[in-house]
Design a binder for these strands. Structure first.
Length: 333
DNA sequence: GATCCACAGGAAGGGTTGGGGG
DNA sequence: CCCCCAACCCTTCCTGTGGATC
C-alpha cells in the first residue's frame, strides 16, 4: 500500500504548497533583500503546532536556493540544538565546513566564521523559543549576510527573554502569523499526501475526513495518523484503509510520540514525570514532595522547576494558573 | 487593598564532562 | 596518560509576580 513512505514523514517538503498563499507571498517578499544583496530583514513566523510554519519556510527557502545562484539556505531545529555551541555549529554547517573547529576554541570562533561569510545566506531557526541563551540571537542578528527566519508557537516566547533594545529593534520585523488549518484544508492536504504516498484508491474521502477531524487543525498529527493507518492496513494485509484501521492507528501514533518524548528525558526528569502521572494533577509543591520521597538523591527545587517546564515543552504535561494556584497536569492520552 | 505565600526564572558560582594537545 | 579548556548542568540566592486571605 505504501509505495512512497517518505511523503508521510514528518519533515517531508512537498513540491508545491497548496494553501497559505498570503503567507507564502509575505515570506517571499520578506526574503527579497536577500536576492538584491541588501541588509536582511528580521522575520518571525508564529502559530500553533501543525499549522504549516516549518513546511512553508522550508519550501520557500528551497525555491529561493533553486532560483538564485550563490544563495545558501539552511534549516536548524533548535529543539535538538538548544545549547549555544551546538546551535552555532549547525548554523555554520549550512554555509561552511565545520570539521576544523575544535570545541576548546569556543563559540567565538564559530561566530567569527559566520561573520566572514561573503555570500548571503538564510537560516531557519525552528522552535526558536527553545534557545536557552538569548545572547545567541543578538549575536546572530549582528551578522551582516545572515537572514534569520525564526519560528515559534508564540512570538513573545522568543521576544520576552530579550533585552529592551533588541525587542524594540524587532518590533520592525516582518511578522507572519499562521492560523490552524480548517477542516477542508486538512482534508485537501491529506488527499495530496495520500495520492503521492499510497497506491491509488487506498483510502477514500470519508476516511480522510475522519482523520482530519481527529487531528483538529494540526497537519503534522493528521499526516502521522495517516501514516500509522496505512501501516495498520498493511499489517492486516488489507489494500484499503478502513475506519477500524484509523481507530487503532490514532492512539498508536499518539503513544509513539509520547514514548519518543519520554526517551529524551534523563532519569530524574522521568521520575518527575512519573510522579506527576501518578498524581494526575498537582501543584509544584506536591510534585516536589512526592519526588523527594521517591528519589534517594533528589535534585533541588529549582532544577525540578526546570524539569517541569521541559515536560510542558515536550507536551508531556500541561500547566494552568499562575502564582500559588499553579497546577500541572500529566498528558498521557 | 494590604499582606502573605508559592511560584517562575535570572544570575553567579562550582563541579563534571569530553575532546584535543602535550 | 594526564592536563587544559570550554561547555554544560546543577545549586544557591535572589527578585518580581500574582492569586489567596483577611
Amino acid at each position: 500500500m505504501l509505495h512512497n513512505a517518505r511523503v508521510l514523514s514528518a519533515d517531508w517538503v512537498p513540491r508545491d504548497v497548496v494553501h497559505r498563499n498570503a503567507e507564502k507571498n509575505r515570506l517571499r517578499n520578506a526574503l527579497q533583500p536577500v536576492l538584491d544583496d541588501e541588509p536582511p530583514e528580521d522575520i518571525f513566523i508564529d502559530g500553533p503546532s501543525g499549522a504549516g510554519k516549518t513546511c512553508l519556510s522550508r519550501f520557500t527557502t528551497r525555491k529561493l536556493e533553486e532560483q538564485t545562484f550563490g544563495v545558501h539556505t539552511h534549516y536548524v531545529d533548535c529543539w535538538q540544538h538548544s545549547t549555544k555551541a551546538s546551535l552555532l555549529m549547525r548554523v555554520l554547517e549550512g554555509v561552511d565546513t565545520t570539521h576544523d573547529i575544535h570545541p576548546k576554541e569556543g563559540t567565538d570562533k564559530i561566530l567569527d566564521r559566520l561573520s566572514t561569510v561573503d555570500e548571503p545566506y538564510v537560516t531557519i531557526l525552528d522552535e526558536a523559543d527553545q534557545i536557552q541563551d538569548s545572547g545567541i540571537l543578538r549575536q546572530l542578528w549582528s551578522i551582516p549576510k545572515l537572514t534569520l527566519i525564526l519560528i515559534a508557537n508564540r512570538e513573545r516566547d522568543v521576544l520576552d527573554p530579550l533585552d529592551e533594545r533588541l525587542r524594540s529593534r524587532l518590533r520592525g520585523a516582518v511578522s507572519i502569523h499562521f492560523d490552524k488549518y480548517s477542516h477542508a484544508e486538512l482534508v485537501a492536504i491529506l488527499k495530496s499526501r495520500a495520492d503521492a504516498a499510497l497506491e491509488p484508491q487506498s483510502i477514500n474521502e470519508s476516511e480522510l475526513d475522519v482523520i482530519a477531524d481527529k487531528a483538529a487543525g494540526n497537519a503534522r498529527d493528521a499526516i502521522s495518523y495517516l501514516r500509522q493507518s496505512a501501516r495498520e492496513a498493511d499489517w492486516e494485509g488489507d489494500d484499503t484503509i478502513t475506519r477500524e484501521h484509523i481507530q487503532t492507528a490514532i492512539p498508536a501514533a499518539q503513544d509513539s510520540i509520547r514514548r519518543h518524548s519520554l526517551s529524551k528525558l534523563n532519569d530524574d526528569q522521568r521520575v518527575v514525570y512519573e510522579v506527576l502521572d501518578d498524581l494526575g494533577c498537582a501543584s509544584p509543591k506536591e510534585i516536589y514532595e512526592v519526588y523527594v520521597e521517591n528519589q534517594p538523591d533528589p535534585r533541588s527545587k529549582r532544577t525540578v522547576r526546570k524539569y517541569l517546564k521541559k515536560l510542558v515543552n515536550y507536551n508531556l504535561a500541561e500547566v494552568e494558573g499562575a502564582g500559588p494556584s499553579r497546577v500541572y497536569t500529566a498528558v498521557n492520552s
